[in-house]
Amino acid sequence: MKVRLALTVNGESREVLAPVHKTLLEVLREDLGLTGTKHGCELGECGTCTVLVDGEPVLSCLALPVAIEGRAITTIEGMAEGGELHPLQQAFAELGAAQCGYCTPGILLTAQALLDETPTPTRDEIKEALAGNLCRCTGYTKILDAVELASMRMGARK
């Protein structure tokens, strides 16, 4: 059953005609060309496919687009605003928090949601928030460092 979906992705309204059983992950990657969203299991077991829905991190591999019509979807492509990198993106690049980069989109968005809610998290709070995102390259060290750095910079900016 194909349905017409009206989605709000990265602030833009997008209409897609897609089978209703395609997950958000598939629609983003295959129908909207937003391949920045990655996938590592498609079963909810790795966190790689994380996107934000109304600012909350969710797994796009288990989300059905029909169920989230009208809600604001943010993917990695929408994280930089007006060509300016989000401080998290800047910090991840500077500190080498992205090695192969495959887990990076999901982790950046999860971290963004954390900082939106808790601007100055402790290291343990960052670990808790990112506990649903596996990374096989970094040992998480530089990722945690980068979130701390971004948080510090964002605090200083205000």
Binding site: L34, G36, L85, Q89, F92, L108
Partner: peptide, 23 residues
């Protein structure tokens, strides 16, 4: 020097095209 990797920027904005991203 602790420089960013040359491909870091593409990776943090989701520009990097891995094999499964090719269409």
């Amino acid at each position: 020097q602790p420089l960013p990797k040359v491909d870091a920027w593409a990776k943090v904005v989701g520009e990097t095209r891995y094999a499964d991203d090719l269409v």
